[in-house]
Write a protein that binds this DNA or RNA. Structure first.
Lengths: 159, 159
DNA sequence: GCGGGGCGGTTGTTCGTGCAACGATGCCGT
DNA sequence: ACGGCATCGTTGCACGAACAACCGCCCCGC
């Protein structure tokens, strides 16, 4: 227990925390801008296509998709609207649950993703992974698995 | 050079990258919600007050403030509008440069910040720092300093 | 001193997102 | 079989932020 309740963060804590905020902000903005410029595809749209491509049958339930890309259900509805309008995916009703809907990748969506994927991966590598050692990877992975459960729980329920 | 151009990320790379995205999303949402609920103060507003409090004379130029909290100039203008309306800060013209404007913390803003600070620090500790070892802190700090310059550069100029 | 280019801050506009409310459907106990 | 309740997706609404255009001011060269 490092905390003394009201005490300020020391230098290293501050660096670790602010660094996370700044790196995320810079990285996501840079990658989003790059993707938008080269393929006219915002980062969130890209992630939807990515998850769909990795999914069984190239389709996912709206609900699962929303939590995968970290978006509210309404947010995903609008996003899927845009992607469907652009022909990158289609909605498909669910036989076993009439409430449900699938989003399914179209061939056009698959092509778009393939093109964008190279760009995005290159970006992630050159801006992020390139600067990490093998040990860094392990530490980061370990940190995230320790931090994520509590953070996810805290952000889900107001409790 | 780990990249093979189009090759997908391996498991550890993916964990390091996705973890960053997920942890940031969960953490910032949780902290924002908490701050909003307990003090009616969104996270970005809190950060403005925080930077002001740490600044010389409790005031900063709009421009510097914008880059500190990672916001566009227009975004900061509106945010300062709201904070000024709530009496947490005031605008102050700059004697040496008639273009410039300062945002200056009011006593009310200082009180608000003091109250919110305890909440926020506790949140950051319990949701993030609590799960880190001393070594983790060092690794994170080191990683951020290696990654940030390139990321910041890439997000600034569209080249 | 006077123009011209650059910078700092504000404004109009647009876009993406979250929240709350809704209709429709599934699931369960009785 | 039916009534109550949770779940899924959509919609109306409001808000926060970015972009581009703008104005006023600084600073430089001539």
């Amino acid at each position: 227990m490092v905390s003394d309740g009201s005490g300020a963060l020391d230098e290293r804590e501050l660096a670790a925390w602010r660094g996370l905020l700044r790196v995320h902000a810079s990285l996501s903005k840079a990658l989003d801008t790059q993707l938008e410029r080269e393929h006219g595809l915002p980062l969130t749209s890209y992630e939807v296509l990515l998850y769909l491509a990795d999914a069984e049958g190239q389709k996912m339930r709206m609900c699962d998709l929303a939590s995968s890309v970290i978006l509210s259900r309404s947010g995903l509805t609008r996003l899927v609207d845009r992607l469907e309008r652009d022909g990158l995916l289609v909605r498909e009703s669910c036989a076993s649950d009439a409430r449900g809907a699938f989003a399914k990748l179209t061939p056009a969506g698959h092509e778009k993703l393939a093109a964008a994927r190279a760009t995005h991966l290159a970006g992630v590598r050159s801006l992020f992974l390139e600067h990490l050692t093998e040990d860094d990877l392990d530490v980061l992975g370990s940190v995230w698995t320790r931090v994520l459960p509590g953070a996810a729980a805290a952000s889900d329920c107001g409790c």
